[in-house]
Design a binder for these strands. Structure first.
Lengths: 202, 202
DNA sequence: GTCTTTCTCGAACGAACGTTCGAGAAAGAC
DNA sequence: GTCTTTCTCGAACGTTCGTTCGAGAAAGAC
């Protein structure tokens, strides 16, 4: 099912066009089971023509993941700028994550689902972006917990549980039935805040 | 790297032997990128010999998933028997899930990660087990919420957030650093209970 | 012993895979 | 116009894939 829309003439735009189609195929079939030929069919670019834009399937996966990660991180940093209140920072963090998720479901599914499929040397580069993103959330949690109200919980477990809630969304979210990003973000912020800061032990 | 341990003579045991190896390969490479030849090498059974035990790669994936699901469900039903208190039932549910997760990491990763890789007609059969499991958790939540303390939250969102916390574990849990199933279950039960039942709105 | 069922595997099937190559079209510079 | 760079693609490469087949070994029944 080739695209109806014309393929952009501009080189950079055409790469983005290819990345979009590739992301959606990786998202639906999984990276390992997707073929470059499928991407060629869907994007309307010839099989060998694709290799002008990326040098291997691995690099293609890397481009998708690193683009998605970089832009979610940038938009988060912009949102957090100047905001000091930890609870508000948490809400903004969750909102940003979920909004990006729902605006770019294919890319985010690839990011969540194909973490393991990427090989060296791309793995290392992604890991460093990932760490920056993780420690941002960890920092927010630590401020939140400055008064020690969540001392009974391992911070690592708390933060990764939050990631679990957020990242699992791609498995079940149905736009026709489920709340949008804003409401979902409020719900999850509520669960996490009360869950983590409320009464100690049991 | 063929197995050192001898291959069981008994037919049913040999199938289990194959399923174990297959699960661990699917878990590490992903279903789509795993080859039957790899399973043959790892299990020590010849390529064509494998097909005496399952008729296709899809069926093999189905066997792994359905075995794992069935036994986690059975062990849960046994644990819940006779327990009425909703909070205790929730703890048991989470404990059972996480314990099974950590006792059978490969199988559970395949269950979580390769949900989409399974095709008809196997999909439908798994869906019905899955629904039974989901509605068990949903039932516990509804009892918990009989007094309406969590009325501000969509029950669906609440329960699926809990699944997210639990199922994401396979992405980050490191036995050397992180708490075991029991402690993790207490933490997550705490987060969920307080998070969902605590103060309304905001 | 024989007969039957259960199990095993080497060799091969056609199909699909990621990637390369070289010829040439299109676009830009002058 | 010519020259150069940028872009495109059909055809083919060697490899690996899931699956099949038929011959025969091993085990169980009698």
């Amino acid at each position: 099912m080739p695209d109806r829309a014309p393929i952009p003439r501009d080189t950079e735009a055409k790469l983005e066009h290819i990345l979009r189609h590739a992301a959606s195929i990786f998202a639906s079939r999984g990276f390992g089971a997707s073929s470059i030929r499928e991407i060629s069919r869907s994007s309307g670019v010839s099989l060998s023509g694709l290799y002008y834009y990326f040098e291997s399937k691995q690099k293609l996966l890397y481009l998708i993941q690193s683009n998605a990660f970089t832009s979610i991180l940038h938009s988060l940093e912009a949102r957090l700028e100047g905001v000091r209140d930890p609870q508000r920072r948490l809400l903004l963090f969750i909102q940003n994550h979920l909004e990006y998720f729902m605006a770019h479901p294919a890319e985010m599914k690839v990011l969540s689902h194909e973490e393991d499929a990427i090989e060296e040397p791309f793995r290392k580069e992604l890991l460093s972006i990932k760490r920056r993103y993780y420690s941002l959330a960890r920092g927010i949690f630590d401020e939140l917990n400055r008064d020690g109200r969540a001392a009974h919980l391992s911070p690592r477990v708390a933060v990764l549980s939050l990631y679990g809630m957020m990242n699992w969304v791609y498995k079940w979210h149905n736009p026709k039935v489920d709340p949008g990003a804003a409401e979902l973000a409020e719900s999850m912020t509520g669960i996490f805040l009360h869950g983590v800061l409320a009464g100690k032990k049991q």
